[in-house]
Design a protein around this nucleic acid. Structure first.
Lengths: 248, 248
DNA sequence: GGGAATGTTCCGCTCAGCGGTACGCACCAG
DNA sequence: CTGGTGCGTACCGCTGAGCGGAACATTCCC
């Protein structure tokens, strides 16, 4: 063992992951020392690693500031089925936004989290804090529950076998209750979120299923509680999800 | 030296870069053997490395197929000033599309290439092969020349000191001619591309400059030769580039 | 069944790269 | 000016991560 104790394993990829992982939407620009502190890696190690990452375009450096590099943006555009998914989904999502006037989301599952792939803002301008590329625990939002409902058992137990973090005033934190909700979502095809992901936010979501039954993404409509009649937009969300799934 | 001869250095980041770099828009889905072949890395090494990358979410595996993972998409969304740039530029680009009816591009410089950050398709539907996240040699397109014109000398000589690849029927391949064009672009603020990037394609571009004079991106309008009066849309492109620059 | 592809596992050797330490530089306070 | 505190980089000796050839398990096709 090279170091006394650390949370990051002695594995090249792990270190790269740690350094890149130090960046998030609240920390888009970091210096070497900050990365070192955030990751727990020694400063000299960080300095060398960062230099390598800059050489290969994973990071961009401006003076002493570091940012995620364009190269990663390029890779990101190739990610999974994103391009095809986006291309197929966009027209439907646009219709949904027009029809409801609310924020429309397209998200995929990544481990125990949900990642937003596309967001169309409602007519009244941006207000919800969600952003493209952003994460949210799957158990705490409509899209997440819609995805989990049709995911393989392994994915569900991954979520349930960890503490269900509280995100909003009414986040479901009991695994049993969550599983019960998932069963109902499987039946109805619709997942609801009433202040589970945030104060005053409500959503309806539906999973986009591949021909083989696997969920590839989920669509949702979100708005302020009260300003949105979840029950009434539900069918529209479900229709859009089915249409996208059929086109895949 | 661990291996007899290879183009990839014995450097962890280099190997990661090589494996990820094996993916491109024509090869979004690869198997271990293909990656091994494309990179020149031994199969056993590739297998282990790929497994690590999957663990950390850089790659997604479906059966034996590998794709770029969602995690890289997330990082990509944090890339450089992309989000801010996009947010500021989008309204202007939309106006430009409305006004001209042609394809509108927003691109940044990455080494000797240009990477498209945003593309708005013209009214007549998609026809040009450019895509978001895609690359094109900087010397062979309007956005590229607009960026090079205001770039530091180091960036220009990087381009000029390599063979200028022919991309379209009229690609500029003589360094001296390129430099001459760059000088004129610096004066007029407008870069033209007349079948230099592809048969029947013409564009006008203008650089978006930061307050300190550095180019951060370039805007262009592209269309079929003949279907587009470059001279007439030039001022609009320039105006939009200036407006975006002022807002940064 | 044999051949050729795929993928993973094994294991011993070795150098990539780790990180403690030292250093140079830029601030700022006293 | 001096001492303190931050930054980022360079040095260098030790060592275990991880390299890769070989062997092996599958699968597919002829």
């Amino acid at each position: 063992m090279r170091t006394a104790e650390r949370n990051i394993p002695d594995l090249a990829v792990a270190r790269v992951s740690a350094v890149l992982g130090a960046f998030d939407s609240r920390h888009r620009e970091l210096r070497v020392s900050e990365i070192s502190r955030r990751t727990g890696l020694p400063k000299s190690t960080t300095s060398r690693l960062v230099a390598d990452l800059v050489t290969y375009g994973f990071l961009d450096r401006t003076g002493t500031s570091l940012r995620i590099g364009v190269r990663l943006f390029e890779f990101g555009e190739l990610a999974s089925g994103r391009r095809d998914l986006r291309a197929i989904a966009l027209p439907y999502l646009t219709d949904l936004r027009e029809a409801t006037g609310q924020d429309v989301h397209l998200a995929v599952l990544a481990g125990t989290d949900v990642v937003y792939v596309e967001i169309l803002r409602g007519r009244d301008g941006p207000r919800l804090p969600s952003e493209v590329g952003g994460r949210l625990p799957a158990h705490a939002c409509a899209v997440g529950k819609a995805l989990l409902a049709f995911a393989v058992e392994a994915a569900v137990s991954l979520v349930c076998n960890q503490p269900l973090r509280t995100v909003g005033p009414r986040t479901v934190t009991a695994p049993a209750l969550l599983r019960q909700q998932l069963a109902r979502i499987r039946e109805s095809g619709l997942a609801y979120d009433n202040e589970e992901s945030g104060l005053g936010v409500a959503s309806v979501a539906s999973a986009v299923l591949h021909a083989d039954g696997r969920p590839v993404a989920a669509v949702s409509v979100s708005g302020r509680t009260g300003g949105l009649s979840l029950r009434s937009v539900g069918p529209a969300v479900r229709t859009v999800a089915l249409s996208i799934g059929r086109e895949l």
